[in-house]
Amino acid sequence: MREAEQRRRWYAAVTQTRERQIEQHRATVLTEQIRAWRQADEIRAFCQAARARTGETPVTADEADWLDWAEAYAMQLDPLQEPLRTPVDPPAGLEVLRELAKIDVYAHPWPFDADGRWMLPDDRPTDPRT
């Protein structure tokens, strides 16, 4: 009975850690998307300002090429040019989760497959906080 309880707690800790790992990964991806979106917006604003500053004087061919390239680059950076999707979950590697959870990852059979999916349906805790 005690061994079963330890096992249940261990799997609960691993499950919580996996959820935290996914949350951190998603936050990183979101932050990177925001950074890229802002950078693209700044590049477009720069190009607009450069075109506006010429006033009556037309933009030179060299300057126009540079600004066209910069605007195309901004489009490549901008994550809003494509539909947004939830990022793919990171792998549920032993070492990564061990660092996050500070637990002995070898105490029981590892519950995740190579894609990070739970593979021990009978042992998955129903509520990892209990």
Rank of each mutant, 00 (worst) to 15 (best):
Q39W: 11
Q39G: 09
A40R: 01
A40W: 06
E42G: 11
I43Q: 05
I43V: 15
R44F: 05
R44K: 08
R44M: 09
A45G: 10
A45F: 03
F46S: 13
F46H: 13
F46T: 12
F46Q: 11
C47Y: 03
C47T: 12
C47I: 07
C47A: 14
Q48T: 13
Q48E: 14
Q48V: 09
A49T: 11
A49E: 12
A52D: 15
A52T: 10
A52V: 07
R53D: 12
R53Y: 06
R53N: 11
T54D: 01
T54C: 03
G55W: 01
E56C: 02
E56W: 04
T57L: 11
T57M: 09
T57Y: 05
T57W: 04
P58I: 00
V59E: 07
V59D: 00
T60C: 04
A61P: 06
A61G: 08
D62N: 14
D62T: 14
E63M: 13
A64H: 07
D65I: 06
D65K: 08
L67H: 03
L67P: 03
W69M: 07
A70P: 02
A70I: 00
E71T: 03
E71S: 04
Y73E: 08
Y73H: 14
Y73I: 00
A74T: 01
A74M: 01
M75H: 10
M75K: 08
M75A: 15
